[in-house]
Nucleic acid binder design. Structure first.
Length: 216
DNA sequence: CAATAGATCATCT
DNA sequence: GATGATCTATTGC
């Protein structure tokens, strides 16, 4: 086992306070760490993200929650970068976003898939029935469940505290840019980024093709 | 294998 | 009152 994930350097505020697409791309390979007050620490390497911006090539990003303006739910997206925006969808799932851009400019990055790094047994307990380790944190709703990230983390400062993002080993994989998934507008824009061959990356329903599990 | 239905509720109209 | 940055089980071929 190499260096403990909790010993890795935390990404500083300046990392986040840049344009959202840059932050999205550079989040690939970094490590989300959750150290709850009690219970097992879990960590996962970011392998898939989506950027939600104010404009793309001059057009409004109508899929971005911040597009409707400042509301109680979206207020954190308008604040300084490096905070967690966690929201609840479909009466069932929590999704983790990272706020980008300096205060006053809305922008955030949806974390869509992680490669489990630590606390795998805890993740398995929270995701009963999932047999493949590489799918424990595959999908925005699945990774929050596996890592026990909830709306209680809304607004959490990711540069300190129990939920942090830390520098991962330099990613050597190639990055693919593709359309975002599950939205009505702006689905053709290449604002989804993932490590090309990574098995945890999700696919649009239409193209899902799960290979057989070859692990023992 | 592919397509669809149902779960279930915060948010905004 | 409708909708949604989802996921899984179930149906049908």
């Amino acid at each position: 086992m190499s260096q403990a994930t909790t010993a890795r350097p935390i990404l500083p505020r300046a990392f986040y306070e840049r344009d959202t697409v840059t932050v999205a791309r550079e989040l690939l390979g970094q490590i989300v760490v959750h150290e709850p007050a009690r219970g097992e620490t879990t960590a996962g390497r970011i392998v898939e993200v989506e950027a939600y911006v104010t404009q793309y090539l001059g057009e409004r990003d109508r899929a971005a929650h911040s597009d409707r303006g400042l509301t109680p739910r979206t207020r954190i997206i308008f604040g300084p970068g490096g905070h967690a925006y966690v929201y609840f969808v479909y009466g069932m799932h929590e999704c983790l976003n990272v706020v980008a851009e300096p205060a006053g400019i809305p922008g955030c990055v949806l974390i869509r898939a992680l490669q489990p790094v630590a606390g795998i047994e805890a993740m398995q307990r929270r995701r009963p029935g999932e047999k493949r380790l590489d799918r424990l944190c595959s999908g925005p709703g699945n990774l929050t469940r596996a890592m026990e990230i909830t709306r209680r983390h809304y607004g959490a400062d990711l540069t300190s505290g129990r939920l942090t993002i830390r520098a991962g080993p330099p990613a050597i994989e190639t990055v693919t840019a593709a359309g975002r998934i599950g939205i009505r507008h702006g689905g053709e824009w290449p604002l989804r980024f993932y490590l090309t061959e990574n098995v945890a990356v999700t696919r649009p329903l239409k193209f899902r093709r799960y290979e057989a599990d070859l692990s023992p």
